[in-house]
Design a protein around this nucleic acid. Sequence first.
DNA 1: CCCAGTTTGCGCGGAAGTGCGCTAACAAGA
DNA 2: TCTTGTTAGCGCACTTCCGCGCAAACTGGG
Lengths: 225, 225
Amino acid sequence: MDSLDSYPSPHVAADLVPLTVADGALWVLLATGPDGRGLALPGRFLRPKRRVLNGVAEVLQEKAGLDIDPHQATWLGLFDDPRRDPRGWTISAAFVLGLPWEAAGRSRLQAVPVVGDGVQRDLLYDHGEILSAALDAVREEYEQFPDPRGFLSGPFTLGQLREVHEAVLGEPLLRDTFRRRMEPMLRPLEGEVALTAGVGRPAQVYVVEQRERWENPRVRLPRAR
Amino acid sequence: MDSLDSYPSPHVAADLVPLTVADGALWVLLATGPDGRGLALPGRFLRPKRRVLNGVAEVLQEKAGLDIDPHQATWLGLFDDPRRDPRGWTISAAFVLGLPWEAAGRSRLQAVPVVGDGVQRDLLYDHGEILSAALDAVREEYEQFPDPRGFLSGPFTLGQLREVHEAVLGEPLLRDTFRRRMEPMLRPLEGEVALTAGVGRPAQVYVVEQRERWENPRVRLPRAR
DNA sequence: CCCAGTTTGCGCGGAAGTGCGCTAACAAGA
DNA sequence: TCTTGTTAGCGCACTTCCGCGCAAACTGGG
């Protein structure tokens, strides 16, 4: 086994992809680059003996000014091209985080609309690649599960839920199938039937049924017997 | 932005979870610990300015004695508990790799049968946790796609393919549904109809239709219009 | 106050998927 | 050679799912 001291080691960055939904579209919250120019994902280097999630928490506090549980962020990937940062050998642990629009508005970060699988302007370092991977991952989640990143802050109607999913996926969805796939993972708030859309027939209000990990029965191969 | 030199940085390990299928069961290939005692996943620390996949390639060559393209290995996760290695501050990038039985037999590693979501004996460091995560990830792949880790080396019949999937999932599968889900992602070898099972009616022989990334139409929400 | 516009919830006919079971095609043993 | 056992492929009846369209329940404007 190698000795721990025989080799240099890379600096580890925790980079965050903070997403939010507003006006029927997906937005990513970006920070300015180190010299004040350019756009980049909010991130920072790890402090000694800290976990990467701790770095995420510090990014949220220092760069975004938000007091949010970092466990809502999920691990996206490790980006380790040695040329990704011209300042030296670094690797980046990237995390995705979904924020309700109100929380995103409270942050010090700049909301930029998502276009296709990225944003209009190029990002610094390899952050364009990280953003693209984040969008892929989040979109796959929103094909299967109701608002897994928590863009909705409170109870919601199926119409509101569908609007969020359409914003994430960038395409209009079929109403009936959407209802039938999502409803088993929602808990209706009994008695609470509200007209939250402003117009049209009042709709049932739901919250997401909290579960450690939902599994999609449609992907499961039927077992014998 | 932080200076790159202001903080110490962790040593980065590339840890591999090499899996294989034999005798209707799943096996993991393990190495002995640094002092010759205990069992651990094969891994090593990164050399300067190298990518993690390069570390995986070195593990395959040095620890397993196999000359295999590391791109077949895929990202599993980042394991960063500062206490995971008593020798110091380390983080581990874990990869999963599927090997055909013949390649696994050629390696210098020790094949240990998988029981449930781990192995009988405890593993060193946090490698039990890594193995468990690897099994979760691989099992989800085998619910959806034909032999994505490449346990089968050559062409195969649907029966052989199903045996592999049953070994990975640890449960018998329903024959018809399995065929109907997998067949669209397979390419039949025309003219080649072989009795590969040894007994019973000869079956059509297939190879996996190579595609950058298969997407499961059953998880996709129907679009409007 | 009434009518036009909008959205929800659900019933219904058609389409797609599911699992059983039959037959074909082989090996092995008597 | 004939019988038994095993597996592959597929037809078929049955169930589930899908998307259309209608009625209900609201807002807002005239």
